[in-house]
Structures are given as C-alpha cells and as structure tokens.
Amino acid sequence: MKQVEKYSDGYLKFRKRQITQKWLVRAAQFSIFAVLIILWEVLTKYQVIDSFFISSPSRIIKAIGELSASGELFGHIGATLYETLAGFAISVGLGTIIAILLWTSSTVKRILEPYLVLLNALPKIALGPVIIILAATQTAAIITMCVLICVITTIISLLSSFINADAEHITLLKSMNANKAQIFTKYVFPSSIPNFISVLKVNIGLCWVGSIMGEYLTSTRGLGYLILYGSQVFKLDYVMASVVIIAILATFMYVLISFVEKRVHKL
C-alpha cells in the first residue's frame, strides 16, 4: 500500500492530541515517582518518620554501595538470578511437555485431572520443609520450590488452550491425513502462542516468589537471604536495598517478555 503524503487538518490535530496525551502520561508517571522518593527522603531526614524502620533513599543507595564495594552483592544477585531463571526454564519446559502428553491422551488426562486440581489448590510453600529435607543442596531445594509453584498452573493453562484449539481447523488437517504430531506442530501449538506468552509472564513472577521464599527457608546466599539477615540484625537498609534490586530485576524480565510478545504479534 502507498503512503498517503498529505494529511487532513483534522488528522493532524488528532495526532497532536495523541502525542500530547502520551507525554502527559509519561510526565505524571515520573512526577509521582519523584515526589514519593523526595517525600521519603525529606520526611526521614527531618525525623518525621524513623529511617531506622523504613530506611531512606540515600541510605538504600549507601547500602547498595557498601554491599557492592565488598563484592558481596553480586554473589547474592547471582545466586537468586540463577535459582529464579533455572526454576523458570525447568517449570516452563516440564509444564509444556506434560501438557502435550495430557493433550495427546484424553484417557491419561481424565485419570490425572483430580490430582491436578488437588495440586493446584495446595499452597506449594507448605511442602517447603519436606523439599529441604529431600533435596541434595540448598540451591536444588529452592529451584524445586520454584518449579512446584509454577508447573501446575503452566500445565493447566497450556492444556486448556491446546484443548480449545479450533476443532474445524483440526478437521481440515485430518482431511489432509495429518497425524497427531502434525496437528500439534502445524496448528495447535502456533494457535496457543499468545497464551504461552502469558504463561511465561505469570511464571517469571511466580518464580521470584519461589526463589525468595525458598531463600527464607533455607539459604546462606541470595537476595532473599539478605532480606532475612537484614531484618534479623535490624539492618533495614539491607532489606530495602534487596527489595529495590528485586523490583528492578523482576520488572526488567517482565518487560523483556512483553518485548518478545510484541515481536510475536507482528509475525
């Protein structure tokens, strides 16, 4: 299609309004952030609220400076990142494989359905102590925790999108004598990709929950450990510094998946 060279006045006004609106939103977003940070800093500085309990932006920056100068911080970040990403990769992989197997055999699916419901309802964190005893290392225990938290929802969500794939498209493929594997790779999986990406988004968030909770239960390393340690020795600056770092890393991963999502939608 050819690009229209000249726009009407009405359209130009519309675009101008749209752009103004966009900058207005950005400005408001940034202002809220700035005001909160400044308020926090000022109120703690003049002792209106006690910085011992809730720390302050300058103390958080100082804490991050201290921790990174001693080299300690990167060890903690590395440990938590490793657990979170390993848990994420394993739960997505395992969940997808199990969902495919259950899609392939409706009998197996029907047999296992009540167990899926039960495991989905169970708060997996309750199994924490058992996992710690069974797992060989702390890291393995924490990764297992992440996987347990994510894998059931992954299976349920993917399976339902596989099952709800349009029956008529599948009949078309069958009329071409497609086998089950072809039906899956040519239609069922591609049509489930939007759902697959939303599963990734949910899982990355849940894996952070798993790794931090896991580190609370058993760990001598990681950002979750740092939070627990900070709270026990009343170094709330460490706690807040860890929270800030987790927030930044988790948001970064979420944005990364959203970026992939946009690319996929363009295909």
């Binding site: 498209h169 078309l172 591609p190």
Partner: peptide
C-alpha cells in the same frame, strides 16, 4: 479434497 463452510486459513 475437502472444502469447508469457513475458509479455515491459518
């Protein structure tokens, strides 16, 4: 060859 009510294009 089978042609359906809907075009069923991917």
């Amino acid at each position: 060859g089978y042609m359906f009510q809907k075009d069923l294009l991917f």
